[in-house]
Amino acid sequence: MYRRYRVPNMWREVDRLQREMNRLFETTYPARRRQAAGYPAVNLWSNENGVILTAEVPGVSPDDIDINVLGETVTLSGVRNIDELPETARYHRQERGYGAFTRSVQLPFNVDVNQVEANFKNGVLAVNLPRAEADKPRKIAVKTA
């Protein structure tokens, strides 16, 4: 982003003020959910062995969803198609979006790629992303000298 630094103090002050305001609002009204960074919105369920990612993708065929895992990053991509209609069809209302989507989520650990499993049921995708064994925390015994 282009920003003039001739008056740096003012902009820095505005940024700081904005952060401060955001923080204030978040503590007063805890955000029930965060704004999704892209389509689809995802929820992450975690425990010590890994993460389950869920996303609502109604109307997307399971064959049209690709899940890619590379190290710590999971990428969901796919396409939602619109009903193919003859020319005589007439839309009264169209509220549902369609098209291709890609969404990447970075996890705080490396994923064991071989153990990744995905489920798709009633338009809800659930991807099980187990933590790589080598990445799991190890307990270090303290020896007495």
Partner: peptide, 18 residues
């Protein structure tokens, strides 16, 4: 929802994930 008319019928398509 999408609503369209085709072949003498009205079709309503709705997103209800889950």
């Amino acid at each position: 929802a999408d609503i369209y008319e085709v072949d003498d019928q009205l079709v309503i398509v709705m997103d209800v994930p889950g």
